[in-house]
């Protein structure tokens, strides 16, 4: 059987999740930019308009998943960058926990915003 190059390998959950979230973000980030910069230009964004969108369950769920994927992808990306930079040992462990806590806080705050907008319709 011919050898096929692939960096997919078993046992690296964070690596796999980074790719899965990347594929999801390609679609959702492009959609988000199109929706709130081209279809509804940022200067014309209002609470009422945002609330109308967030009151649609599929939009709400998509945005929360978008936030979760972006948060994981970004925070994990920063962690990987630190590893590439040569950070290791205690500083790397400390960075991991700071990033994990920051990621959770960001996600929770984002969901609070989404709920506030969904309830404002």
């Amino acid at each position: 059987m011919a050898e096929r190059y692939s960096s997919f390998r078993a046992g690296s959950t964070r690596w796999f999740l980074q790719r899965i979230t990347a594929a999801f973000l390609v679609v959702t980030l492009a959609f988000h930019f199109y929706l709130v910069h081209f279809l509804h230009p940022a200067p014309q964004i209002t609470f009422g308009g945002s609330a109308g969108r967030f009151s649609v369950p599929s939009y709400f769920v998509t945005m929360v998943l978008f936030l979760g994927a972006a948060t994981f992808h970004g925070v994990n990306g920063v962690y990987n960058a630190l590893v590439n930079q040569g950070v290791e040992g205690t500083p790397l462990r400390a960075a991991k926990w700071v990033l994990a806590v920051a990621g959770v806080l960001l996600f929770v705050q984002g969901v609070r915003v989404a709920l506030a907008l969904a309830g404002g319709a």
């Binding site: 209002t46 609470f47 009422g48 945002s50 609330a51 936030l67 972006a70 948060t71 970004g74 920051a102 960001l106 705050q109 984002g110 609070r112 915003v113 506030a116 907008l117 404002g120």
Partner: peptide
């Protein structure tokens, strides 16, 4: 930017105005 974006949008928690 994502952290900044959520911080700005958090103004929604204080109402529409």
């Amino acid at each position: 930017y994502l952290f900044t974006h959520i911080a700005v949008l958090s103004s929604a928690l204080n109402g529409a105005a």
